[in-house]
Design a protein around this nucleic acid. Structure first.
Length: 429
DNA sequence: TCTGGGGTCCTAGGACCC
DNA sequence: TCTGGGGTCCTAGGACCC
């Protein structure tokens, strides 16, 4: 049996790169993309990083500086990023059929079948092809385990002289880099485990690799032992080529303005419940209980704080928007109290089940008419796909949507690839 | 004025059972 | 004074990821 080899490819400053694909003027300019509600910076180009803009930096703190420095700022445009991600993955699939889509901008590829001496060339070819076909710049890390492929990717990103590719299945490269990566930069090691590992005398990934597995397990449970083995080149994590059915699903949002009245809260929660139904129907999943929560903001220091979380049980599993909205509104009304400035609300489900196989309630004891409901929901989803999300909503409880609470996207670019009315316009002279 | 959203995995500890 | 020993299931919370 030949040793395994994984490649991890990811898009550089992915959201920013997507914006650059559709506006060539952004090349070499500092660009950032903001989180939902235009809250903070979640993607920065190298030029923006060089200006000192940190990951997660609140927008209101850097707004003035960004204006002065000419930083180009965008609200999140997930329709665009999701579509670009699919295009990039289509290119990866032409290089290896065994691929795990790990996140919107990262995928693992199994390249065990590629000869050791050909791996680096393959990675370079793949980078060039992704760039040519989608416009997205990438980096590729190669390793005998997923953790080492991640590490290699990190090295490729931090060391421009490598030309975007690092292969740690090459023993010389492995020995060279493993001693140069600090513990905090290892995949799976966050702030808490960095402290624990440093207390054990580990400064580099090589130090962690050389830890006794029992010591690692004691300090960091099974996660620690697995980490040590993966760094040694012993694969403990498999490629997950089939996306597992999801276990939970949530729709949560901060309000653009604080919410102080019940009617607005009901409107927001009903909209979140409707979106939840849409997501569940997309995967043919259902739930028989839903958690509704809302709370004030820790940043309102001088204000009374309140945090509510309540579970509403349904008679049987469902993904019907009308059922979910009704249940969630019940949760809000049951727990509502005036006199607070609420900053965020959400609906959360866990224990999702494939709807078709789920236990039915007895007729007369709350059984939901699934057949008729499913047809109605399918029609609803079709309308919303065609005319945009939220075009049609159930008229639950006489709500008249004003959407005063809704999320801000004040600087969003056009959805170039998914909306005909937002196609880029080209002028030929 | 203004500070994201959505996931997963793992463990400890309590309740409950035989 | 002495007051079992295992199971399982559930929940809350920590930690981490992008």
């Amino acid at each position: 049996m030949t040793a395994r080899a994984y490649a991890l490819s990811d898009g550089n400053s992915f959201y920013c790169s997507c914006e650059r694909v559709f506006d060539a003027r952004l090349a070499r300019l500092p660009v950032i993309v903001l989180s939902n509600n235009d809250g903070c910076a979640i993607a920065r180009t190298n030029e923006a990083k060089a200006l000192g803009i940190r990951m997660g930096e609140p927008w209101f703190k850097i707004r003035d500086m960004c204006r002065q420095q000419g930083v180009r700022v965008y609200s999140s445009n997930y329709a665009l990023y999701g579509d670009m991600s699919a295009r990039v993955n289509a290119v990866y699939r032409s290089f290896s059929p065994r691929i795990e889509v790990y996140s919107i901008d990262e995928s693992f590829l199994d390249i065990s079948d590629v000869r050791e001496s050909d791996r680096e060339a393959l990675a370079r070819d793949m980078r060039a092809t992704v760039r040519a076909w989608t416009g997205i710049p990438t980096c590729v890390g190669i390793g005998p385990t997923k953790t080492l492929a991640k590490l290699a990717n990190h090295v490729a990103k931090k060391n421009p002289e490598l030309g975007g590719v690092c292969d740690l299945t090459d023993p010389e490269q492995y020995d060279h880099w493993i001693i140069r990566v600090p513990v905090g930069d290892i995949w799976g090691v966050g702030p808490a485990n960095t402290r624990r590992l440093e207390a054990l005398g580990c400064d580099s990934a090589a130090d962690v690799r050389d830890l006794d597995t029992r010591v690692a397990r004691k300090a960091m449970t099974v996660v620690g032992e697995r980490l040590v083995r993966e760094l040694r080149g012993e694969a403990c994590l498999d490629l997950e080529t089939l996306a597992p059915t999801r276990k939970g699903c949530a729709v949560t949002r901060s309000f653009s303005n604080r919410v102080e009245d019940l009617a607005t809260m009901e409107e927001a929660v009903a909209a979140h419940a409707a979106r939840l139904g849409e997501k569940l129907r997309g995967e043919r999943l259902g739930t028989d209980h839903v958690t509704v929560f809302f709370h004030t903001s820790e940043h309102d220091r001088d204000r009374p704080q309140r945090s509510v979380s309540t579970v509403v049980t349904l008679p049987e599993a469902s993904n019907d928007t009308r059922v979910l909205v009704k249940a969630c509104l019940h949760g809000v009304r049951k727990t509502w109290k005036d006199g607070f400035r609420y900053s965020k609300a959400g609906v959360v489900t866990t224990d999702l089940v494939p709807l078709a196989a789920s236990q039915r309630a007895l007729p007369g004891l709350g059984q939901i008419d699934r057949e008729q409901g499913a047809a109605l929901m399918a029609a609803l989803d079709a309308c919303n796909r065609r005319f945009g999300r939220g075009a049609v909503v159930p008229g639950a409880a006489g709500l008249t949507p004003k959407r005063e609470w809704s999320t801000k996207f004040e600087m969003r670019s056009p959805r170039y690839t998914t909306r005909a009315d937002e196609l880029p316009v080209v002028a030929a002279a």
